[in-house]
C-alpha cells in the first residue's frame, strides 16, 4: 500500500514552472526527479488526495476503550498485513502495551509484544503474543493499552518535516507522501509517542494513518475490524451519531501527553496515570 500522494504537488509543479527559463535549465533534471509521481491530485482549489472523496466533509477520530482490550494482538497482526509494515518486532503502526501492578509495588511493570521474553514465547518475530510471565505473581491490577498514531491537531512530525512530505489532511489524518519523503527521520525524532519508524527497505518514514485507503472508501481501519471486543472505536466526528461521537460524548475521555501541545485525536478510556 502506498500512502496517498501530497495534494500540494500541484503547488510544487506551479512553483517549478514559475522558476522560469534559466532556473529551469539549471534545475530541470532535479525538478523532473522530485515532482510527485503517484496519483495526481484532482482538480479544485483544495483537492483531496483520493479520487471521489471530499476530505473537507469528514473529521475522523479514534477511540480506545482500554477496559475492553484483552491483549489478543489481532489488531497488530491485521495492521501488519494490511499496511505492509515490516514483519519484525521493531516496526509497528499499532502496538499493545501491558501494565501490571504487583502486590506491594507502586509502579507498573510495563511490556509490549516486542519484548524479547514475549518474542520468545511466540517463537517468531512475525507472530505476537504476551507471555504469561506473571502467572506465579500476585497481580493487584493489570490492563492493556492499544497505541497508534494520534493524528495530532498540531503534529510535531509535520512541523519538523523539511520538505512537507508529511502533512495534515483536511479530514484530520496525518499523511506521508512516500514519493517525496527524503528519509531524514527528523519526524521520527519529533513524535513524542514513538508512533513513527523508518522503513529501511523503502528508505522512508512510515506510521499509522488510520487505514486511509480504507476509510476514504467508507470502510473501517483494519485494526478496528479485527478487534474481537470492540476496544477500538472509529468514526466521523461530523456525524453526531457515529461510534466515535457517541464514545466521546458518553465517556470521560483523555488523551496521551496533553502537555505536549500536540492535541492528539485518539481518545482513551480506562487508562492509568502511568500511561503516556
Amino acid at each position: 500500500m502506498t500512502n496517498p500522494s501530497d495534494p500540494s504537488g500541484k503547488a510544487r509543479r506551479e512553483f517549478l514552472r514559475r522558476l522560469g527559463g534559466v532556473a529551469v535549465a539549471c534545475t530541470g533534471a532535479a525538478a523532473c526527479s522530485v515532482a510527485p509521481q503517484s496519483g495526481g491530485p484532482v482538480a479544485g482549489p483544495d483537492p483531496s488526495p483520493v479520487k471521489d472523496y471530499d476530505w473537507t466533509k469528514h473529521h475522523w477520530a479514534f477511540g480506545v476503550d482500554a477496559t475492553k482490550c484483552i491483549g489478543c494482538l489481532r489488531c497488530v497482526e491485521a495492521c501488519k498485513t494490511e499496511n505492509d509494515v515490516p514483519g519484525d518486532a521493531h516496526h509497528f503502526n499499532t502496538w499493545i502495551e501491558r501494565y501490571v501492578y504487583l502486590e506491594g509495588e507502586t509502579k507498573a511493570r510495563i511490556d509490549s509484544h516486542h519484548d524479547p521474553v514475549n518474542i520468545a514465547a511466540s517463537g517468531s518475530e512475525k507472530e505476537f503474543r504476551f507471555a504469561n510471565r506473571y502467572q506465579d505473581a500476585k497481580v493487584e491490577k493489570a490492563f492493556f493499552v492499544p497505541k497508534l498514531c494520534n493524528q495530532c491537531t498540531h503534529p510535531a512530525c509535520v512541523q519538523v518535516c523539511p520538505t512537507g512530505a508529511t502533512y495534515k489532511s483536511k479530514d484530520g489524518v496525518v499523511l506521508i507522501d512516500d514519493k517525496y519523503c527524503i528519509g531524514c527521520q527528523y519526524c521520527v525524532q519529533a513524535c513524542p509517542y514513538g508512533a513513527r519508524y523508518f522503513n529501511p527497505t523503502k528508505g522512508v518514514t512510515q506510521k499509522c494513518y488510520w487505514c486511509y485507503h480504507r476509510i476514504t472508501k467508507g470502510l473501517r481501519p483494519a485494526c478496528v475490524e479485527a478487534c474481537p471486543v470492540g476496544a477500538r472505536i472509529f468514526g466521523d466526528r461530523n456525524d453526531k451519531q457515529s461510534p466515535i461521537s457517541l464514545f466521546i460524548r458518553n465517556n470521560r475521555v483523555q488523551v496521551l501527553r496533553p502537555e505536549s501541545g500536540n492535541e492528539p485525536n485518539v481518545f482513551y478510556v480506562g487508562i492509568d496515570k502511568e500511561v503516556s
Partner: peptide, 21 residues
Amino acid sequence: LGHAERAFNTMLTPHWTSAMA
C-alpha cells in the same frame, strides 16, 4: 538519508516550519 537523491527537495520546496528546511 533514506533517499539522498531527493535531498534537493528541501531547497526546491522548503517546508518553512521545519528547523531543518
